[in-house]
Computed example of a mutant assay.
Amino acid sequence: MLIKRADLDSPAFIALLEEHRAAMEATAPSESQHALDLAGLRQPDVCVWTLHEGDALLGCGALQRLDDAHAEIKSMRTARAHLRKGVARTILQHLLAEARLAGFQRVSLETGSMGYFEPARRLYASFGFVECAPFDTYVEDPNSTYMTLEIPDPAAVAPEAVASQL
Rank of each mutant, 00 (worst) to 15 (best):
L166K: 04
V139Y: 05
Y124E: 05
L83N: 11
Q165E: 15
M24P: 01
E118N: 06
A125L: 01
A15P: 10
K4Q: 14
A39P: 08
L57R: 05
P11M: 10
R122E: 13
S30I: 15
A120F: 03
K74T: 00
A12R: 14
R122T: 11
A120T: 13
L66H: 06
L66M: 11
P152G: 09
T78M: 07
M114I: 12
L57F: 04
E18T: 15
C132M: 09
R84F: 00
A28E: 04
G54D: 08
M1A: 11
T137C: 02
L166H: 09
Q165N: 03
L92R: 01
M24H: 06
E118K: 14
P119L: 03
R80N: 04
A133G: 02
T78N: 07
E25Y: 00
A22V: 01
D37S: 11
M147R: 01
T148C: 03
F13V: 06
E72M: 04
V107Q: 07
D141K: 04
G54H: 02
A6S: 10
L149E: 06
A155F: 00
E53S: 12
L96W: 07
L101R: 15
W49H: 08
E72I: 02
A99N: 03
M24D: 09
R65V: 12
K4N: 03
E31Q: 15
A35L: 11
V87P: 03
A62M: 05
A12G: 13
S10Q: 01
P119R: 00
H82N: 08
R5S: 11
D9W: 00
D55N: 12
R5A: 15
H94D: 05
H52N: 12
E25Q: 08
A155L: 07
A97P: 00
E140K: 15
L101Y: 08
A69L: 08
E98N: 05
A71H: 04
R89T: 13
F127R: 02
L41G: 07
R5Q: 13
H20E: 11
L63D: 09
T111P: 02
D141A: 07
L17E: 14
L41P: 02
L123M: 00
I3G: 03
A125K: 10
R106K: 12
D153A: 11
A35E: 15
E160D: 10
V162F: 06
A79E: 09
A62R: 02
A125C: 02
E18H: 14
L83G: 09
P134Q: 02
L166I: 11
A15D: 13
M147D: 04
L66N: 09
E72A: 14
D136Y: 13
E25C: 06
G54F: 07
